[in-house]
Computed example of a mutant assay.
Amino acid sequence: MSTLEEARNVARFIHALSGGAEVRRKAAARELSRRDPLDTNELVGVLISLSRQGWGPATCVLTDFMAALEQEAEHIPHVDVLRRLAHVQSLDTVADLFAQGPAKKEMDADAAARADANAFSQSLGHLKQQARLTRDPDTLSRLATVSNPTVLRNVLINPRLTEDLVVRIAARRPARPEPLIEIWKSPRWSVRHAVRRALAFNPYLPPEIGAKIVPLLNTADLRELVASTSLHSALREQATRLLAEGVDAVRQAVTHAVPARRPDGPHGLD
């Protein structure tokens, strides 16, 4: 079983790794794959709980575990059964990570392709090269509207790209899911709070991706998400549970911090 101390040790170890987001993501995937499914769920559940309590290392590495569940799934042999077992284990905050189904809103792929063709006459290869190398902010802004994910992948590695533009891309509506997923996969941009928030609040993002982002949001974001009728119901329910998890954590902290008075004297006083 994944004890609290074991989860803390795992978080400390991954948090201390050098080499960037990809190294930490792969290390998180190895931690998930070497355990049996029940222990995997318990580890993730404890890390979510520790993060909601505000423990720094867990908050930092939770990003790596969420990315591993999405991007390294093929290297985690039992990933398909985690959702079912999480329900059996009554680990609702873990089961929530495996939301399924279509996004709240969807943009037709043919319509997106026609919009790209009307806006750009260059070949796909030229657009990708331009996206990666252009120094002109206006050109970069125009290329950021392309629905083809390979073009956006190159936009995201352009050194001239700003967080403000990435947030605008992540919040763009209507949108195809593929470019939004590229932003979530970007080690450079997916760690930015404003970018995560824009993705999570975009009704065109598939819920299986949104469910990995919601646990990384802060309390104010979660409250706003719960109140938003434009988002997928699974994400709103997930946010509700995470808020409850945070409230429980605060109650436990207060309980442990304030010892009960000992009624030694006749009036409860020493």
Rank of each mutant, 00 (worst) to 15 (best):
54 G>S: 06
146 V>I: 11
94 V>Q: 03
202 N>G: 03
215 P>Q: 05
186 S>K: 03
168 R>T: 13
127 L>V: 00
103 A>F: 02
250 V>F: 08
235 L>G: 01
64 D>V: 07
7 A>H: 03
55 W>Q: 10
53 Q>V: 07
23 V>W: 00
77 P>Q: 07
186 S>P: 02
28 A>E: 04
149 P>I: 05
202 N>S: 08
193 H>P: 02
264 D>R: 14
219 T>L: 11
119 A>P: 01
50 L>T: 05
254 V>F: 14
236 R>V: 01
8 R>N: 13
193 H>L: 08
5 E>P: 01
230 S>W: 07
4 L>N: 13
258 V>M: 13
53 Q>F: 09
115 A>S: 12
133 L>W: 13
104 K>M: 12
182 E>Q: 09
55 W>R: 14
228 S>W: 06
113 A>W: 09
203 P>G: 02
3 T>M: 09
254 V>G: 12
211 A>Q: 00
97 L>T: 02
118 N>A: 15
85 L>R: 10
55 W>F: 11
235 L>E: 01
151 V>K: 00
218 N>C: 11
180 L>F: 05
233 S>Y: 08
41 N>C: 14
91 L>H: 05
113 A>R: 14
45 G>N: 01
88 V>T: 15
210 G>S: 02
237 E>W: 10
230 S>G: 13
106 E>N: 13
47 L>M: 10
190 S>H: 00
67 A>P: 01
123 S>K: 01
179 P>R: 00
77 P>G: 13
31 E>F: 06
26 K>V: 11
206 P>V: 04
91 L>C: 08
64 D>K: 06
153 R>G: 03
155 V>A: 03
42 E>M: 10
237 E>Y: 10
237 E>T: 12
124 L>W: 09
254 V>Y: 14
29 A>E: 00
153 R>T: 02
114 R>M: 14
7 A>I: 02
204 Y>D: 06
135 R>Y: 09
165 L>Y: 05
81 V>H: 11
252 Q>K: 11
66 M>Q: 05
177 P>L: 01
169 I>E: 08
1 M>L: 15
267 H>A: 12
21 A>R: 09
172 R>H: 13
268 G>C: 06
39 D>L: 06
261 R>V: 10
148 N>T: 06
